[in-house]
Design a protein around this nucleic acid. Structure first.
Length: 327
DNA sequence: ATAATTTGACCCGG
DNA sequence: CCGGGTCAAATTAT
C-alpha cells in the first residue's frame, strides 16, 4: 500500500478507515493464530474482503458512498475485539494473552450446538474417514480430514462427537491447520436460501427493531441511534460474491451456547481499540464498525434462518448453530 | 464415472 | 491387551 493521496479528503479518510479496520483485523488474527481454525479463516476472509474493497476505492478514486454496504465483502468486522471471545476452547490450549505465541500444532476444541441436517458447514470441506465408539460415551466419534488432503496435502483434521448430555451439542476438536486453498464455485457457495427457519427469521426482525448503535463518546453531536434495519431476504446481499473462498454466510465467530443468542442488542463501539483515536475519522469508523458488526450478526442469523428445523433425527454431520456475542 | 460415506480391519502407544 | 486413530474396500450418493 502506498500513498493514497487523492486530494479528496473525504476519500482518503474513508480509505484510512478501511486500513484501520484491516489493521485491527490483523491484530485479532495474530491473537488467534494457532487457535480455532475457523476463527482464523474468518478473520482472513475479512481481511481479504476489506483489502479488496480498499483497493477498489483507491483505484476508482471515488468513494463518497460511505454507505456502500459491504455487500461485496459479505463478511465483516467481528464482534470480538480485545476479548478472547467465548470462542476459547474447552480444553487444551486456550488462547493465551495478546502475546505472540507460536503456531502451536495443538488442538483446538470447541463446543457448538447444532440444529439441522448437515448443510451449513464451518467453511471448510471435510471428508469423513472413520467413526469410532468411544468408551464411556454413548455417542460415536467421527473423524474427518480436509477434502484437499490428497490434492493439496492439507493436513487439517477434526473430530466431532455429540455431547453426552445435550444431543444438540457437539464437541469439535480441530487438529492441525489448513494449508489448502479450496475453490468453491460461487454457485456452490450459496446454496442456502432453501428452507428458511421461521424462528430465526422472526428473531431477525425483532432484532432489527431493537437495535441501537451506541456511538459512544465519539465525536460530538447527538449520536442518533442509527436506524439499522434489514429485510428478511437480506441473504443475497450478504453472500460474498468476492473471490475469496469464504463459503456461505455460515459460522460467524460462533461456538458455545445454543440457539441464536444475541446478548445485548446494543452495539458498543470501543473507541480505544484502534489507535484511530483521532477525531474526524471516528465518526466514520463508528459507523463502519456498527455496520460491520451488524452484518456479522445478520450473517449469523441468516445462517440460522437457512437451517431447516428440527424434524426428526439428524445424527450426521453436525451443523454449526449460531451464537453471537457482542460485548 | 466420480466423489463421499460406511465400517471392519489394522496399527500403535500405553 | 485395550482403546483411539487411520486405512481401505465396499457401498451409496452425485
Amino acid at each position: 500500500m502506498e500513498s493514497v493521496v487523492d486530494g479528496n479528503g473525504r476519500g482518503s479518510r474513508l480509505v484510512m478507515t478501511e486500513l484501520s479496520h484491516i489493521k485491527e483485523l490483523v491484530n485479532q488474527l495474530d491473537v488467534h493464530l494457532g487457535g480455532c481454525p475457523e476463527l482464523c479463516k474468518h478473520l482472513a476472509a475479512q481481511i481479504f474482503a476489506v483489502t479488496e474493497r480498499s483497493i477498489g476505492m483507491i483505484r476508482s478514486g471515488n468513494i463518497d458512498g460511505l454507505k456502500r454496504s459491504a455487500g461485496s465483502a459479505g463478511l465483516d468486522s467481528p464482534p470480538f475485539s480485545a476479548t478472547p471471545s467465548p470462542l476459547s476452547g474447552v480444553s487444551d490450549m486456550p488462547f493465551k494473552a495478546n502475546k505472540r505465541k507460536r503456531m502451536v500444532k495443538g488442538k483446538c476444541q470447541v463446543r457448538v450446538s447444532s440444529a439441522g441436517g448437515g448443510a451449513v458447514d464451518d467453511g471448510f470441506s471435510w471428508r469423513k474417514y472413520g467413526q469410532k465408539e468411544i468408551l464411556g460415551s454413548p455417542n460415536p466419534r467421527g473423524y474427518y480430514r480436509c477434502t484437499y488432503r490428497k490434492t493439496q496435502g492439507c493436513a487439517a483434521t477434526k473430530q466431532v462427537q455429540r455431547a453426552d448430555e445435550d444431543p444438540t451439542l457437539f464437541d469439535v476438536t480441530y487438529h492441525g491447520t489448513h494449508t489448502c486453498v479450496h475453490h468453491k464455485t460461487a454457485a456452490a457457495t450459496n446454496v442456502q436460501p432453501a428452507t428458511p427457519n421461521p424462528d430465526a427469521r422472526s428473531l431477525l426482525q425483532s432484532l432489527s427493531s431493537s437495535l441501537t448503535v451506541n456511538t459512544e463518546g465519539l465525536t460530538s453531536g447527538p449520536q442518533q441511534s442509527t436506524p439499522f434495519s434489514f429485510s428478511s431476504p437480506a441473504v443475497s446481499s450478504l453472500t460474498p460474491q468476492g473471490h475469496y473462498p469464504s463459503s456461505s454466510p455460515s459460522t460467524p465467530e460462533n461456538c458455545f451456547g445454543q440457539g441464536v443468542t444475541v446478548s445485548p442488542s446494543r452495539l458498543e463501539l470501543s473507541p480505544a481499540t484502534s489507535e484511530s483515536s483521532y477525531n474526524p475519522m471516528n465518526q466514520f469508523e463508528a459507523e463502519w464498525r456498527a455496520e460491520s458488526e451488524l452484518q456479522t450478526m445478520v450473517s449469523a442469523l441468516v445462517a440460522a434462518s437457512s437451517m431447516p428445523e428440527h424434524d426428526g433425527f439428524e445424527w450426521l454431520e453436525p451443523n454449526f448453530d449460531v451464537s453471537i456475542y457482542f460485548v
